[in-house]
Structures are given as C-alpha cells and as structure tokens.
Simulated scan of single mutants.
Amino acid sequence: MEIQLKSEITCTSCGYKKVEEMPTNACQFFYECNNCKTVLKPKEGDCCVYCSYGTVPCPPIQNNKSCC
C-alpha cells in the first residue's frame, strides 16, 4: 500500500478545513488553524493531530508502526 502524505485537517472550533502535507520524520503534536487560530492537540490515545483531526492517519500509522 502506498503511503499518503496529504491529509485534510478539520478545526474543531470553527470547522475550517485545509489539506496539509504530513511530516514523514516526526509527529505533529500541535496545529494552529489558519482561520480562527485555535491550536489543536491530539485526542487522548492518538499520536498526532493528523490521527485525531485528519482524513488520513500519519505515515507511521499507515505503515502499521508505532508513531514517534
């Protein structure tokens, strides 16, 4: 399976959506919404903001590996 590097992340405060390229060498723990400036953090049990708020999980999870 080919690893997808883009994920659409959705802000839980205002609903703004943006497609972002995920890092392949690190987890992203914080994400600032471009619209309302809310800083998103991973939900409990998730390794990064993409696993919590994105349409595609982060590359390590897609590869069935532990994230960071």
Rank of each mutant, 00 (worst) to 15 (best):
T55S: 10
S13I: 07
P42Y: 06
Q62G: 04
K41Y: 11
K6Y: 12
P60M: 06
E32Y: 06
K43L: 13
M1A: 15
E8G: 04
Y16A: 00
N25G: 08
I61L: 09
I61F: 01
F30T: 04
C27D: 11
C68Y: 10
C36F: 14
G15V: 07
P42K: 05
E32H: 09
C27Q: 09
F30P: 01
D46H: 15
E20C: 05
N35H: 15
I9P: 04
T38A: 14
Q28L: 02
V39F: 08
N34M: 15
N34K: 14
C67L: 06
F29H: 10
K17Y: 00
Y31W: 15
F30M: 06
V19F: 00
L5K: 11
C51D: 02
T12W: 09
K17E: 00
C58Y: 02
Y31Q: 04
K43C: 09
P60G: 04
C11L: 12
Y53M: 01
I3C: 11
K65Y: 07
V56P: 02
N25S: 13
T55N: 02
P60V: 10
S66H: 09
E20D: 01
Q62Y: 00
E8W: 03
K18G: 01
I61C: 06
Y16T: 06
N63P: 03
C68W: 09
C33Q: 13
M22Y: 07
C36G: 13
I3E: 13
K18L: 01
E2S: 15
V19Q: 04
G54D: 01
C14M: 02
P57T: 00
K6F: 12
Y53G: 07
Y50D: 08
V56A: 00
N25Y: 11
I9S: 06
C11P: 13
K18M: 01
S66W: 08
Y53N: 03
C27R: 07
T55R: 00
P57L: 02
E20M: 02
P59A: 03
Q4H: 14
K6W: 07
A26R: 09
V39W: 09
C58P: 08
C48N: 04
C36M: 14
K41F: 12
E44L: 12
Q28T: 06
E44Q: 14
S13E: 12
V39I: 15
Y50L: 09
T38G: 07
S66E: 13
C47I: 11
T38P: 10
Q4A: 13
C33K: 13
N63I: 05
P57Q: 06
C27V: 12
E44N: 15
Y50G: 03
G15D: 10
N34H: 15
C58Q: 02
N25Q: 09
E32A: 09
Q4M: 11
C14N: 08
C58E: 03
K43M: 13
M1R: 14
K43G: 12
E8L: 09
C36V: 13
Y53H: 03
S7M: 10
C14V: 07
Y16I: 00
C67F: 08
C51R: 01
P59Q: 05
P57D: 07
T24R: 08
C58R: 06
C51P: 04
F29L: 11
A26S: 08
I9M: 01
G45L: 10
E20F: 06
I61K: 12
C67S: 09
E21C: 03
Q28Y: 01
C67E: 07
C11Y: 13
G54S: 05
Q4W: 12
C67K: 11
L40Q: 14
G45D: 10
G15L: 03
Q28F: 01
